[in-house]
Design a protein around this nucleic acid. Sequence first.
DNA 1: CGCAATCTTGAAAAGGCTCAAAACGGGTGG
DNA 2: CCACCCGTTTTGAGCCTTTTCAAGATTGCG
Lengths: 253, 253
Amino acid sequence: MGQGVPAGGRIVRPNPIADDGSDQKFCSTCAFGAACVGNGVDKIRLSELHCLVEHVGPYRPGQSIVRTGDRFGAIFAVRSGTVKTRLVDLEGRELVLGFHLPGELIGLNAIHAETYPCDAVALDTVEVCRFSFPALATLATRIPQVQQELFRRLSKDLGEANLRKQEATADERLAAFVLNLSARYEARGFPADSLHLAMSRSDIANYLGLAAETVSRVLRRFQDTGLLKVDGRDVKLCEVAALRDVAKNLLHR
Amino acid sequence: MGQGVPAGGRIVRPNPIADDGSDQKFCSTCAFGAACVGNGVDKIRLSELHCLVEHVGPYRPGQSIVRTGDRFGAIFAVRSGTVKTRLVDLEGRELVLGFHLPGELIGLNAIHAETYPCDAVALDTVEVCRFSFPALATLATRIPQVQQELFRRLSKDLGEANLRKQEATADERLAAFVLNLSARYEARGFPADSLHLAMSRSDIANYLGLAAETVSRVLRRFQDTGLLKVDGRDVKLCEVAALRDVAKNLLHR
DNA sequence: CGCAATCTTGAAAAGGCTCAAAACGGGTGG
DNA sequence: CCACCCGTTTTGAGCCTTTTCAAGATTGCG
């Protein structure tokens, strides 16, 4: 556990709320600890991060982790399950911004307005780590690696958000989507060729800027041509090379 | 000018290269100084920023400020002119990521890979401020407001990048584009109802995910219906309320 | 077992793209 | 000063991918 340590005239103290009495649940034992906090921070200092993390959940499918307009106070790392971020406009139409797997962060886009600009909704059973942002920012001034890791995460998300705007056919989008999910699961130690979609067809469609019917049709065609094996929300990648070829315009840039 | 000041065991010294001998060109006299470095940093500490800024340019139309793959070492603030960021894929097709007006930052998306992920090209005569990123990051650990401002900028860009993915008709896109440019110019003290486009129709089209012909046609129609007065690259906003109405699905969310 | 939500499938409509060509505008050189 | 040339912009017409609308099939769950 971290002790109170002087930091630019401030004192960072262990957060009794965060320290929920179950040390073994902390990130050192979390399957996604490394992915979550990055590799730049050495083990000893990592314990200081633990002092400001708070485990929250489980959330049930459909429950909100944050809501649009909520006051920004923390960023969240997904521990388990899948989280959808989305906007709902005045007419009730939804815009799906992204899907977040374990180890990925939510709330970085809220720093600016000091208000969450979108909902974060659990798609299945979800547990998260809550990082108080003021505390994290203070820690970042003391530990350059923490600052750097935050900059890096923001920068990475920014770059990826920018890339998502390129126009492409429905086939390209779906192939890239499946490959992207596969790669993200694989990076977390799950099999790369077999994945379960936590989100509905219409969520996928909305995220990719397509109609739900189109998603259905393309998936069907991918199955007919042997690229995928689709069984409801279970997807098996059969011809990864061929998928990559379909998605090539969206991948190597 | 800033003196060397201890900072977490490091010394930050005035950068002789940055201090190009023309104090009056520094941001305190720069028209966009306030917009550029933000309002969180008080005047005295702002002088420390000056020690690590370097004025670069002018660049002529078509010249690159950074190229894809260049080693990341600095972020840039546009001082004058308009900068286009873009990707060029293997087949030579261009993808326009954004346009940057004076006061806006370039290069934040390069922190992650430590390599610029896109080209930044001058559309007209462009001058920029160069901020060494390592120096800026070090300063950020000493001055929380600088850190906060960087987080905020990244967060803002991230949020805006996410919004740009929503699908919309050509009319909605164009109307929103013109209104967005207008608002950005206005925030910098330029007239809001009369603007000059530094970019070509095909750049606009590419940025908005449309064909150049479509941009031309929609602009024509906007002119015919009295929303705009278009003369080449000079655009006059005649019916702002009506434009807002056309773009409403892309604005208030 | 039956309802409700999700997913699939088919046929028709539409918005924007492609291709092609003409108009325009701004430099350059005679 | 004018003719010419190049790149950009505009305009037209047909086409194509995806959407929409409308049913029907599945699935999960009370």
